[in-house]
């Protein structure tokens, strides 16, 4: 008898924990759902959607979403999952990440909202996540938005995933997910952990610069928090010096390092060495014509354009490491401007 009862209870305990292996969306949805809104604005014709997603980030009704043609209107409409309609206007937009900050007109009360944290998400690849968004505007009525489940697939450098401003630092990463979020209307939606914590915001539909495939990604909370801090401050007028950086032309390269890259016939011309200046740093280091430059300073370079871009970013350097392919072998070449004593 005692034995049987023990078994029963242990089984109950196990079942209770198995139940958690099921998704716990039921438990977290009452908290998460009301914080997300469907955003309706301009568009609706010519293949342009007039809908996207956003979410409250303050009790006073600040809403974060992506900047898009949907917002090209004086007022946008926000619809909550319960069907409440709110009017909102754009406060400011962020060209760096393509975000927009909205202010909703709350008719009293406080908005249920996510707290933006400025630390990078502690979530790890393989962790369960939910993506919640107004994809395809499926939820037209007073009904909850669409929920997809998956795992955090990993992290990728921001610049590799999307053509955001190249001045954004490389170490900043976006979150990749293994659910398809690259859908009309999904941008501005949220990726939350299985405990309902905000991990990131679904970004606009973009093709990956690495694979060419449509990417399923989210801008992590820390980037969002930084952006919102920026947006809440008075705008700074950019100085003209910031854009002074220019690509060195071929002659400058030849003067400094002593090699000529192949003429850039197309944006995809491979970075072959066309010529090496006798007695230059390049020749001393062993660089040869017809070498194919595959890495410059640890960055892969698939074309003349990419090689020039890296050389630009390193224009003050006194040393330059190249990895070249020569007759099926990889050869490491270090160019050195500082003459040995």
């Amino acid at each position: 008898m005692w034995c049987r009862a023990t078994m029963l209870l242990v089984v109950c305990g196990l079942l209770a924990s198995f139940a958690q292996a099921q998704t716990n969306w039921r438990e977290i949805s009452p908290d998460v759902g009301p914080r997300i809104v469907k955003v309706y604005g301009a568009g609706g014709g010519g293949g342009l959607e007039n809908y996207q997603t956003g979410f409250f980030i303050s009790a006073e009704g600040r809403v974060l979403t992506v900047n898009s043609p949907v917002l090209d209107t004086d007022e946008v409409t926000l619809v909550t999952e319960e069907g409440n309609r709110l009017t909102a206007r754009v406060v400011r937009t962020d060209p760096l990440l393509g975000l927009a900050l909205l202010q909703a007109e709350l008719s009293g009360g406080i908005a249920p909202h996510f707290e933006l944290k400025s630390e990078f998400s502690p979530a790890q690849p393989g962790d369960d996540v939910f993506a919640v968004s107004n994809l395809f505007n499926v939820a037209t009525g007073p009904e909850a938005l669409s929920v997809q489940r998956g795992v955090l697939a990993g992290k990728a450098p921001l610049e590799l995933v999307s053509p955001f401003d190249p001045t954004v630092k490389r170490e900043q990463a976006v979150l990749l997910v293994d659910v398809v979020t690259s859908n009309p209307g999904a941008a501005g939606g949220v990726i939350v952990s299985s405990r309902g914590e905000l991990l990131g915001m679904i970004g606009p539909e973009r093709r990956s610069r690495v694979t060419g495939a449509w990417h399923n990604y989210a801008l992590p909370t820390n980037l969002l928090a930084d952006a919102v801090t920026r947006l809440e401050q008075p705008p700074v007028i950019p100085t003209s010096e910031d854009s002074a950086a220019q690509r060195p032309d071929a002659a400058q390269l030849a003067r400094r390092w002593g090699f000529w890259l192949a003429p850039e016939i197309s944006s995809r011309t491979p970075a072959y060495i066309d010529d090496v200046v006798p007695g230059s740093a390049a020749e001393l280091a062993g660089l040869q014509p017809d070498d194919l430059v595959v890495f410059v300073a640890e960055t892969s370079t698939a074309s003349v354009a990419e090689a020039l871009a890296v050389l630009t970013s390193q224009r003050e350097a006194e040393q330059m490491a190249l990895l070249v392919e020569r007759n099926g072998e990889l050869v490491r070449i270090t160019l050195n401007l500082t003459k040995p004593e």
Binding site: L135, S146, V180, S182, N183, P184, E205, W214
Partner: peptide, 13 residues
């Protein structure tokens, strides 16, 4: 299913 820019393959809906 909802299909979009990629033609008739599943996009999670």
């Amino acid at each position: 299913a909802s299909f979009e820019k990629r033609g008739r393959v599943n996009v999670g809906i």
